[in-house]
Amino acid sequence: MTEAVALAAGLGWASGFRLYAALLIAGLLQFAGWVQLPPALQLLAHPAVLGASGVMAVVEFMADKTPGVDSLWDAIHTFIRVPAGAILAYAAIADLDPAWALAAAIVGGTLAAGTHAAKAGTRAAINTSPEPFSNWGASLAEDVTVVGGAWLVWQYPLVFLGLLLLFVLFCIWWVPRVFRFVRAILRRVGGWLGFSPPAQRP
């Protein structure tokens, strides 16, 4: 049960960072016979699914390394990562118990939303700097984090769940701050362009 919970949480969490890489990693591990995915997720190892997730993982890898394009990509994927995280988490526990699977979907979608918000907000803040190196560094750190998280999910699920709890606490602290910073930048840019914020009601 611990492994199934860690897998559900891990897929939800990773979907907010690198959805297609998460699909590809899980599918490749199943295809190679290194792990046994739950029945509802074994379709990820089908060659057609591997090919599609592989192509999209490469596209996402390139888009995420380009300042500005990464924020546009994140904006579009606001409507993809969160439901995908919920569906993957549900599928990870679907064969155990319907109630637990529904709970997993709720948590998985929430984790995907939190991870996505932290990632998108941080990258938007980083993109206010004209140099590309901080963007590349943040993107590569996300790549390594997802691969490392996948390794922990299957090797040390309890360790992963403990670190995930710390990450959730960090997001609760970090996301409001980074979005306040981004909002302040947008207001400043709006002032430069002649757009004034709406007057506050008395």
Rank of each mutant, 00 (worst) to 15 (best):
P67K: 07
S139K: 00
Y90N: 06
H116G: 02
I126H: 11
A138V: 12
P83L: 09
L88F: 06
A124W: 05
L111I: 05
K119F: 03
A141Q: 10
P67Q: 08
I93G: 00
A75T: 13
R123W: 00
T115L: 10
G148T: 01
A94P: 02
A99K: 12
A99L: 12
A112G: 07
P98C: 11
A84N: 03
D70W: 10
A118S: 05
V69A: 07
D70N: 15
D97C: 06
T122G: 14
P98N: 12
S134L: 15
L96H: 06
T115P: 04
A99Q: 13
L88R: 02
A89D: 03
A91S: 08
N135K: 14
A92N: 07
S134R: 15
I80R: 06
R81E: 02
A101H: 13
A141D: 09
T66A: 08
I106D: 08
I87V: 14
A113D: 00
D74E: 08
W100P: 00
G68E: 04
L72M: 07
N135A: 14
L140S: 14
A91M: 11
T122V: 13
H116V: 05
I93N: 00
V69L: 07
A125T: 10
W100I: 01
G85A: 07
G121C: 15
P132L: 15
A92P: 05
V82I: 10
V107C: 11
S134P: 11
H116F: 01
R123I: 02
A104M: 04
A150P: 03
D95Q: 15
A89P: 00
S71G: 05
H77M: 01
N135D: 14
G109W: 01
A103K: 04
E142W: 03
A150Q: 07
T122P: 04
L102W: 12
I76N: 02
H116C: 02
N127W: 07
I93P: 00
L102D: 11
F79V: 13
G114W: 04
A75I: 09
T110V: 04
I87A: 11
P130W: 08
A75H: 02
R81P: 03
D95G: 12
D70M: 12
T66K: 09
I87F: 11
V82E: 01
G148S: 04
G68L: 06
W73L: 01
P67E: 07
W151G: 11
S129A: 15
F133Y: 08
V107H: 09
A94V: 05
G149Y: 04
E131Y: 05
D95Y: 14
A105N: 03
G149S: 10
H116S: 02
G114C: 06
W136Y: 13
I76A: 10
D95S: 15
G148C: 00
V146P: 03
D74F: 05
A117M: 14
W136S: 10
G121E: 13
G137Y: 14
A84R: 01
P83G: 11
L72N: 09
I126M: 09
